[in-house]
Nucleic acid binder design. Structure first.
Lengths: 126, 126
DNA sequence: ATTATGTACCATGATTTATAATACAGTTAC
DNA sequence: GTAACTGTATTATAAATCATGGTACATAAT
């Protein structure tokens, strides 16, 4: 279920955080579905339980999942406009950054098309 | 010449690094133009000379500037394809990230247009 | 010579990330 | 109720990164 890059400069807990969001948005994890327990996931990917717990706590803080003591952690409904806006805000920063380095709008749009094309081809179909 | 956000989570040396690149690409700093000395810029923005030195060394490593002991640091020619590719590679990462969060290509393109429009209006004209 | 430049150290402190080891509180199943 | 599982909290430690302070050296311009 999980692949983590221990050599990446991106913190492990952040990689877990991102991965869960991807799985939730892609539908691989559906609403109210239970996530692996903190200890199991930690053992699975070979990291400390505290690291997984940190990821889960961040996910809960951002309403991606909800956790219940004694029961576990579950995907919550993902119709959060706040989350969408946060994502777009991050994207805007990247566009501004790229623009300031002299890259044109058309060039950026072409990259977007290329990336979406590649994703479409790589998708698994039901 | 410089505005640095000491409270930002982005390292100071990285802010300096980014700012110099922006000024070089926008033409505010032109080819072979001399930059403020490490010590002067440090005093100017209220940071440690070592921090400025680190930014300058990164800039030199990426061929944005060149430094000569006893003389100073200067803008080098900015026709580096390598630099352009590095910028686009970063942008691609952001697009992929945003896509995985369920944002459509069209939405991203609209944001690009909006940002470029705002920039055009905000520009200073000669 | 004096002054200004970039560069190179070394030590220190703060912050962040990750680990390790416990412990506590709540739930489920027996 | 007991055992085994959940999330959560705490404390300690280690490593890496960031920034500062201070000192020193080599080079260049005057």
């Amino acid at each position: 279920m999980f692949s983590i890059d221990l050599t990446s400069r991106i913190p492990i807990y952040e990689q877990i955080y991102n991965k869960i969001i991807e799985l939730a948005i892609s539908g691989t994890l559906s609403e109210n579905e239970q996530l692996p327990s903190v200890r199991n996931l930690a053992k699975d990917i070979g990291v400390n339980p505290n690291t997984v717990a940190k990821a889960y706590q961040e996910l809960e803080r951002n309403k991606i999942i909800y956790s219940v003591q004694g029961r576990g952690s579950f995907i919550s409904s993902l119709d959060s406009d706040i989350f969408r806006e946060a994502t777009l805000s991050e994207f805007d920063k990247s566009v501004t950054f790229t623009m300031k380095r002299g890259i044109s709008a058309d060039t950026m749009k072409n990259r977007i098309d290329t990336i979406f094309e590649a994703d479409k081809k790589g998708e698994k179909h039901d």
